[in-house]
Nucleic acid binder design. Structure first.
Lengths: 234, 234
DNA sequence: CCAAAAGTGTTCTCGATACACCCATGT
DNA sequence: ACATGGGTGTATCGAGAACACTTTTGG
């Protein structure tokens, strides 16, 4: 949809402009831990970051940051928060994004870009650390009421794979039976005919994520609202 | 906390700048309906809007928009979403806020500013309409798991007042007994010794909102996470 | 036959829902 | 006395949490 800009009262003759710094936090899971992608820099680590171009949406800028500064493709991207950076050499507004890379296909093509363990990442600026913390809070919260976890996994996966994702992100162990009951009652998985054998034990059935549930919540909010429109229908 | 800006790789010599347009949606309840505050404009209505100044945070800019363009004080303010406005005369990034004004003290001091009914508001730009819709979605969602509703009410209120707020915002009728049970079991209210008589019927006990619960959620998420730190403690 | 992960059911508790009557007051 | 909104309790149901054993495979 093309949006029209409403006519604003000309506020003042000296309009103040800022650089728009779009900064995605790209998570992925490797070796049973949660990692963040960091961009090449001299010295310590930093989040990938681009400044917004003319005629570019914030979302595309966030994708561009991943492509140009990391050399990777995304699967999921969501805006997090914006803030004006104070005491910057140049007036700038920072727009943070939460991105998710699939467990397998997450090579970083740009030299110098590297994955870092989230929980032990210290050599990073205060502002980047804050953004990463917030992104993790959001990711954790969204695990509970959205299907965001699937973006961390490849197309086909076992239920144990999925449970591991939840455990790694949430940082605690979940009960297998309760987990499976909940996931299966949400009706968002499709069993495939394939299985995976990978050790001296029973092979795991592989599942696929059902379409049309992608960014939707599958848990009902406590007090659901009426559809926007006429009020107070019981 | 003062944030330091991490040294970025000098991206290009021609840095692209945008006007930062901060636009709060201020809700309040009047005459049993939900209203939005609109700023003076020639022709139809529009949301209040300021462009960010030097050395000003986004939050203060949102408050300034309320003061300068509406002439009102806020009680609650929260960032909603940012987007780059395409096809604008000047490159601009719009940052939307959700604000809440108390039911009583919500006069608009700036001449031309006016409250509009949310559900029947039509003479407004597409972009402002979208922002208002989104703000309403967020407000409705937050009713269920935060104490945001209290900002719509004066310091002291009856339980029926509170229920009415929920009903008006959600657009549907709630059961009185279930509503009271839930609110009271959340343990966020304090009964005062005062009552209010305002008709030929039993007077209502007045309650006060307990402190220290202000912006906090009082409903536990489905799968709570471990505190950020070492992972996988059961 | 042993190790290892996959897979599967039941019980309990608690919160959400539906539902109807008495209470205190002003006129 | 009656009209009006304030205030209260009980029964049902479903979801979340706790908890242990059998199944299938490779070695």
């Amino acid at each position: 949809m093309v949006l029209e800009l409403p006519s604003q009262p000309a506020s003042s003759t000296t309009e103040f402009h800022s650089v728009i710094d779009v900064r995605p936090v790209l998570f992925s899971i490797q070796h049973g831990e949660l990692w963040v992608a960091t961009a090449p820099t001299s010295g310590n680590w930093q989040l990938p970051s681009v400044s917004l171009n003319a005629a570019e949406s914030l979302d595309s800028a966030a994708l561009r940051a991943l492509r140009d500064q990391l050399g990777t493709e995304h699967r999921y991207m969501e805006q997090l928060y914006s803030l004006a950076v104070e005491n910057a050499p140049e007036p700038s507004v920072l727009i943070a994004y939460l991105g998710i890379a699939q467990s397998g296909a997450s090579q970083l093509g740009v030299s110098g870009a590297a994955w870092q363990r989230v929980l032990t990442l210290s050599e990073i600026s205060a502002i980047d650390a804050r953004i990463i913390d917030y992104a993790l809070v959001r990711l954790r919260a969204k695990l509970g009421y959205t299907t965001i976890a699937f973006h961390l996994l490849p197309m086909m996966f076992s239920l144990s794979d999925l449970q591991q994702v939840y455990e790694i992100v949430l940082g605690r162990v979940l009960d297998k039976r309760n987990f499976r009951r909940r996931i299966q009652s949400a009706d968002i998985l499709e069993a495939t005919r394939e299985t995976r054998r990978e050790g001296s034990h029973r092979p795991a059935r592989l599942y696929r994520f059902r379409d049309a549930h992608d960014a939707d919540s599958y848990l009902t909010p406590v007090w659901a609202a009426a559809p926007v429109g006429e009020p107070l229908t019981p």
